[in-house]
Amino acid sequence: MAIFVDKNTKVAVQGITGRDGSFHAQQMLEYSDTVVAGVTPGRGGQTFADKVPIFDSMAEAVGQTGANTTVIFVPPFGAAGAIYEAADAGVKLIVCITEGVPTVDMVKVMPYLAERGVRLIGPNCPGLIAPGLCKLGIMPASIVAEGNVGLVSRSGTLTYEVVWQLPSAGLGQSACLGIGGDPVIGTTFLDSIKAFAADPQTEALVMIGEIGGDAEERAAEYIQEHVDIPVVAFIAGQTAPPGKRMGHAGAIVSGGSGTAAEKVKALAAAGIPVAERPKDIVPRLQEIWQR
């Protein structure tokens, strides 16, 4: 049944007329028939791809189409505003793809979402794809297949690299989730792992972490105590120098903490195998997964 989405998911795309928004809205439409609305202020009344109505606001989009989910492609200066608008309009799941959102904006957004019971994925993330169900964001549909492995990751292309290797082992995915590379994000590793553990379709889990923060360590602790399905991890950034931001705003070793070595140690201590190379992830999973 995947996580965070189901067959009642109805998607609005905020920023649907922009370069990235229109390209990816088209891709989402081709994958599943879940996109019901687009939003670009000033473009209300037009249609996207001859079928999706465009509205001036999220309130109109939700009121007229029943959208309960949104995917945001608006530029960084408007991203937080788009999140507030979506939450105010009543959607329950917001996926913010935008990279480069100021961290303070996200700090301020969080209580607003919590008060309204809204889940945020991202920002600075590739989104979520539930093979055979729907695609929210920019993950390439061509490489995924329906199955029982859940994937959660802080990055995009590194996740695709791992997904790419699953078919050779006859494995598909229940869902692939990119939680984003920023320091302050909505859905964390911990939230995702709880959701995957509660999902009957998910029988095994791959967690792809990287340097910065201690979300992997926290997840490891939780997995050790509460998760019964097999889990394999990978951590990127062991060669990253301290104090330098490695592309993702959150991928930085600061004050000597957040190193790959610490994370690998915490995962191993919790009994979670850590693959040394991306190509070792699937074999390590097969070792511990008695199907």
Binding site: S153, R154, S155, G156, T157, L158, T159, E161, G181, I208, E210, I211, F234, A236, G237, Q238, T239, A240, P241, K244, R245, M246, G247, H248, A251, A260, E276, R277, P278
Partner: peptide, 29 residues
């Protein structure tokens, strides 16, 4: 472009920050 200079000799051009870090790590491996 997101760039950080290191001390080695294998110049890396990768799409995506996570894959870029994993590529550096693999060079070391």
């Amino acid at each position: 472009l997101s760039f950080v200079k290191l001390e080695g000799n294998v110049g890396c051009l990768v799409n995506g920050a996570g894959l870029a870090m994993a590529t550096m790590d693999l060079v070391k491996y």
